[in-house]
Structures are given as structure tokens and as C-alpha cells.
Amino acid sequence: MADKLHFALVSPAKELFSGEVDQVIAPGTEGEFGVLVNHAPFMTTLKNGVVRVLEGDSVKMRIFVRGGFADVTPDGLTILAEEARNLDGVKVEEVQAEMEATLLKIQALDKDDTAKGALQAHFDYLESLKAALVH
């Protein structure tokens, strides 16, 4: 299909999407950007935010990413995300509960515990995810 963009989104856990779409809008560190078929090649880093996959003018899928890279080539767009979650079916209450559990774990650790940094990064990710769901 020459009039469609091949798009793949991969995280360390799994491939979340691979297929032909009309457009993808992603949260670049230098600002949000959109990619259509035959886009000029480029590579950029991503910030936490929502990747929107469009069919026509309708958003087909919303995927929250935590950092990563976007690579546009003549073959299409590939996003390699540090962490990604399809927003379909994700409930704010579940994210809030996970945030509270993570916060309790952080508070239970010594201030010098090396696990504290990873838990704080996860908490920050959950905060961004919750904000994306609310807006």
C-alpha cells in the first residue's frame, strides 16, 4: 500500500503495534511531530507522552510511551520506547492505586537504598501516565 505509512512500536517487553496507518503523531523531546507516508528520514528522541495513531482524521490508538527513539526511514516509522502502554482499557483508578503502592515502597526504603531511584522513576512515569489519561 503506497499511500499508507508502515508503523511499528516496540518496547523491551513486546511489540505493541506493527501495521499500515495514515499518520502517527509522537511526543518528541523538541516538540510533538507527525509522520505521514513518504516523510523525509530523521531520528529523534522521545519524551514521556502519548503516541497517537490515526486512520483518516480519527485516532485509532493511543499509546503512552516513557522515553525512547523514533526513526523515520523510507520504509516507515519505528518507535523504540523504554516503556509503552496502550491506553485502551487503562483506568485512572488502577494507575492511582499503583502510584500509592509505589510510594509506600519508596517510603519504606532507607534514603541510601539503591532501589529508591528506580522506584522514583517508576512513580514519575505513573504520574505522567495518569496525567495523559485525565487529559
Score class of each variant (00 low, 15 high):
Gly49Cys: 11
Asn86Leu: 07
Ser128Gly: 11
Lys14Gln: 15
Pro74Leu: 11
Lys130Cys: 10
Leu16Arg: 00
His122Ser: 11
Asn86Pro: 10
Glu15Phe: 02
Ala132Tyr: 06
Ser128Lys: 09
Met1Asn: 14
Ala8Phe: 03
Val37Ile: 11
Glu82Lys: 00
Val134Asp: 13
Asp57Tyr: 08
Lys47Ala: 08
Gly31Thr: 09
Lys60Ser: 13
Asp57Arg: 13
Arg52Cys: 04
Gly76Tyr: 03
Asp75Tyr: 07
Val95Asn: 03
Ala8Asn: 06
Gln23Val: 07
Asp88Met: 07
Tyr125Asn: 06
Ala132Trp: 04
Arg62Thr: 02
Lys130Ser: 12
Leu103Lys: 15
Gly56Trp: 08
Gln107Asp: 14
Gly67Glu: 12
Gly89Asn: 06
Gly67Arg: 01
Gly28Leu: 02
Ala13Lys: 14
Leu129Tyr: 01
Phe7Ile: 02
Gly117Glu: 13
Leu77Ile: 13
Gly56Pro: 12
Glu20Thr: 10
Ile63Gly: 00
Val134Trp: 05
His39Ile: 02
Met99Trp: 04
Gly19Ile: 01
Glu93Ile: 08
Leu54Phe: 15
Ile25Glu: 07
Ala13Tyr: 12
Asp112Ser: 14
Gly49Tyr: 04
Glu100Leu: 07
Val72Ala: 06
Leu5Ile: 05
Gly67Ala: 07
Ser128Asp: 14
Ser58Asn: 14
Phe64Ile: 02
Leu77Ala: 09
Glu127Tyr: 02
Thr45Glu: 12
Val37Glu: 11
Glu127Gly: 08
Pro74Lys: 11
Thr29Met: 08
Leu54Ile: 00
Thr29Ala: 12
Val59Glu: 14
His6Tyr: 15
Phe7Met: 05
Gly49Trp: 06
Leu126Lys: 00
Ala13Ile: 10
His135Glu: 14
Lys111Glu: 14
Phe17Gln: 05
Phe33Pro: 03
Val10Met: 07
Phe64Met: 02
Ile106Asn: 08
Val95Ala: 02
Leu104Ala: 15
Ile25Asp: 04
Gly49Pro: 04
Leu126Gln: 07
Phe64Asp: 00
Leu119Glu: 10
Glu82Trp: 00
Ala40Pro: 06
Phe64Gln: 00
Phe64Asn: 03
Ala121Tyr: 02
Glu15Ser: 12
Asp88Pro: 01
Val50Arg: 00
Asp110Ala: 13
Ile79Asn: 03
Leu109Ile: 00
Lys4Tyr: 07
Lys47Val: 01
Thr114Ala: 13
Lys14Thr: 10
Glu93His: 08
Val95Leu: 07
His39Gly: 08
Glu100Val: 08
Lys60Asn: 11
Leu54Ser: 06
Phe69Arg: 04
Ala70Trp: 01
Val90Gln: 03
Gly28Lys: 00
Glu98Ser: 13
Glu127Ala: 09
Phe69Pro: 01
Glu15Ile: 07
Thr45Ala: 15
Val37Thr: 15
Phe42Asp: 10
Val21Glu: 06
Gly68Arg: 00
His135Phe: 07
Leu129Lys: 01
Leu80Gln: 11
Pro12Trp: 06
Gly56Gln: 09
Asp88Tyr: 12
Leu103Tyr: 13
Asp71Asn: 13
Glu30Ser: 15
Phe42Leu: 14
Thr44Gln: 10
Met1Pro: 13
Thr78Ile: 13
Ser18Gly: 10
Phe123Val: 06
Gly31Asn: 12
Gly67Ile: 04
His39Met: 09
Ala108Met: 04
Asp71His: 06
Gly117Val: 11
Asn48Pro: 11
Pro12Ile: 08
Ala131Ile: 01
Ala8Trp: 01
Val95Cys: 05
Gly76Val: 06
Val90Lys: 01
Thr45Met: 12
Glu127Asp: 06
Ile79Val: 12
